[in-house]
C-alpha cells in the first residue's frame, strides 16, 4: 500500500472510531467534535442550478512528478478540475486524508462513466515543496498518476514556498506551521481543508470545505459544469 493508501485507511479507521484520537479531536461535547460531513438531503440534479464564477485561478509554475516545470494553467484549464492542496505526511483525519478519500470516491464514480472521466482531472498540489519534491510526490501518487487513465490525476509540487505562497494567498488557502510548547515548529501544517472546483476556462466555480465534502453533491457539481456549453 502506498502512502496515500495508508493515510486513507487511517482516515477510515478513525472515522469508524477504531483508532484512538478521534474523540480527542473535539473539545468539549463529543457530539460537537469534528466529524466527516453528513449529507441528509437529496441534492439538486446536475444542470438544474448554476455555479457562478468565484474567481480565476492565479498563474503559477509547478513541478510535475518528473520534475518538469509547467505552468499551473496546464492543470487547471481544458478540463473540469478538482484541485486540492495537501502534504504527503498529513495525518489529520479531517484534513488531507479526508480530501483524499473524497477524491478517491469521485475518481471511482467518474471512471464508471468514461465519457465524463475524460473531461475531468484531479490535482493534488503540495503545501510543502521542501519535503514533497517531485520524487516524493511520485512515490505518494503510485498508480494514481497513471497517464493512461481516462481520468488524469496530477500530483504536483513547486520549487519553493516563495512561489507557492502567492498562489495560496490568491486562492484564500490558509496554512500555518504548528509549533510545540517551546515554540518550535513541528511537522504539522495547519490548514483549512479546501477543494477547488475549476471549470475548463480556469475559473473557480465552487469551494468545498469539510462540511461540503459530499461526493454526491460534488459529482453533481462536476456534471453541472460538464453540461455547460463549451467556451467559444
Amino acid at each position: 500500500m502506498n502512502r496515500a493508501g495508508r493515510w486513507a485507511r487511517t482516515a477510515v479507521l478513525v472515522a469508524a472510531g477504531l483508532l484512538p484520537g478521534a474523540a480527542s479531536l473535539g473539545a468539549g461535547s463529543p457530539e460537537l467534535a469534528p466529524r466527516a460531513p453528513v449529507q441528509d438531503f437529496v441534492p439538486p440534479a446536475p444542470g438544474s442550478y448554476a455555479l457562478p464564477p468565484i474567481q480565476r485561478v492565479p498563474q503559477g509554475t509547478v513541478l510535475d512528478i518528473d520534475g518538469r516545470r509547467q505552468p499551473l494553467s496546464r492543470y487547471t484549464t481544458g478540463r473540469v478540475t478538482l484541485l486540492s492542496f495537501m502534504y504527503t505526511y498529513c495525518t489529520d483525519p479531517i484534513g488531507c486524508p479526508l480530501a483524499y478519500e473524497t477524491m478517491m470516491t469521485l475518481r471511482d464514480r467518474l471512471l464508471a462513466r468514461p465519457e465524463h472521466a475524460r473531461r475531468v482531472q484531479l490535482v493534488s498540489l503540495s503545501f510543502d515543496p521542501a519535503h514533497d519534491v517531485p520524487e516524493e510526490m511520485r512515490r505518494y501518487a503510485g498508480r494514481l498518476a497513471d497517464p493512461a487513465s481516462p481520468l488524469r490525476w496530477h500530483f504536483l509540487t513547486m520549487r519553493s514556498v516563495a512561489e507557492l505562497k502567492p498562489l495560496l494567498d490568491e486562492l484564500g488557502q490558509d496554512v500555518s506551521v504548528e509549533v510545540d510548547a517551546q515554540g518550535r515548529p513541528t511537522r504539522v501544517l495547519n490548514h483549512m481543508l479546501k477543494l477547488f472546483l475549476i471549470d475548463a476556462r480556469g475559473r473557480v466555480r465552487e469551494i468545498y470545505s469539510s462540511a461540503f465534502l459530499l461526493p454526491d453533491v460534488m459529482l453533481n457539481d462536476i456534471e453541472t459544469l460538464l453540461l455547460e456549453p463549451a467556451a467559444p
Partner: peptide, 15 residues
C-alpha cells in the same frame, strides 16, 4: 530549498 522554505514559512508561523 530548505532555506527558502524557512524564510517563507516563518511568515506562516501561527498557533
Amino acid at each position: 530549498r530548505l532555506t527558502t522554505m524557512a524564510v517563507l514559512l516563518s511568515s506562516m508561523l501561527a498557533a
